[in-house]
Simulated assay, not measured.
Amino acid sequence: MTRIDVFDPPLCCSSGVCGPSVDPLLAAFAADVQWLGQQGVDVVRHNLAQVPQDFVGTEVVRELLSLEGEACLPVVLVDGQVLQRGAYPRRDALAQAAGLQPAASTTKPRLKLSAVANGCTPGSGCC
């Protein structure tokens, strides 16, 4: 089974799809990750703000951060090999890396927007 690890930059929540101004690329990527899971692909997201030890403990990510700083994020690994860095891959690239045929999403990503001006805060309900 294919394993995909996504090393996200610091995000306010695990998917980054929260707060007052949601990046549409993050919303699309979240939908792609959900689709991969439905296809049986093991996808694990690592958020620098929440689990920095995962970044230090993964040699290739640690080396990229040492050389390029946070500009290399996100880093997407497929079975330990770099698929893409610096931007989220599109569904077709993810599907190909996982040995799948890409398919259009059958649902729209669910977004929960917060009215808080500065993004997510504890208890705001956005995460």
Results as ranks from 00 to 15, higher is better:
Gln38Thr: 11
Thr2Gly: 09
Gln81Ser: 13
Ile4Ser: 01
Ala115Arg: 06
Ser15Arg: 00
Arg91Gln: 13
Val76Pro: 08
Ala97Pro: 14
Val82Gly: 07
Ala115His: 06
Ala98Asn: 15
Cys18Asp: 10
Phe55Tyr: 01
Ala117Cys: 09
Gly99Tyr: 12
Val22Ile: 14
Leu113Val: 07
Val78Ser: 11
Ala31Ser: 07
Arg85Lys: 13
Gly37Asn: 06
His46Asn: 07
Ser66Leu: 15
Leu113Thr: 06
Ala28Gly: 04
Gln50His: 12
Gly69Lys: 15
Gln53Asn: 01
Asp79Lys: 14
Leu73Ala: 08
Phe29Leu: 13
Ala93Cys: 13
Gly16Cys: 07
Val116Asp: 01
Ala49Ile: 01
Thr107Leu: 05
His46Ala: 07
Asp23Leu: 13
Ser15Trp: 02
Ala71Glu: 14
Val78His: 13
Asp92Gly: 10
Pro9Asp: 01
Gly123Ala: 03
Phe7Asn: 00
Pro24Arg: 11
Phe29Gln: 10
Asp42Asn: 14
Thr58Phe: 00
Ser124Ala: 03
Pro89Val: 07
Gln84His: 03
Arg45Glu: 12
Val75Trp: 01
Val41Cys: 14
Ala115Lys: 05
Gly80Phe: 13
Val33His: 07
Cys72Tyr: 14
Asp54Pro: 00
Pro52Gln: 04
Asn118His: 13
Gln96Met: 13
Gln38Asn: 11
Gly19Pro: 15
Tyr88Asn: 12
Phe7Asp: 00
Gln96Ala: 15
Trp35Phe: 05
Gln84Leu: 10
Leu113Pro: 02
Leu100Ile: 08
Lys108Thr: 04
Cys13Glu: 02
Val33Cys: 08
Thr2His: 11
Cys126Leu: 01
Ala104Gln: 09
Asp54Ser: 02
Tyr88Thr: 13
Val82Leu: 14
Gly123Asp: 01
Phe29Pro: 11
Pro10Val: 04
Cys127Glu: 01
Gln53Arg: 00
Val78Ala: 13
Ala95Pro: 10
Ala28Cys: 04
Arg85Cys: 01
Pro89Ser: 06
Arg3Tyr: 04
Val61Asn: 01
Gln101Val: 15
Pro89Met: 11
Lys108Ser: 06
Ser124Arg: 01
Cys13Ser: 06
Met1Tyr: 14
Pro20Cys: 10
Pro10Trp: 02
Gln34Lys: 04
Gln101Arg: 15
Asp5Trp: 00
Ser124Asp: 06
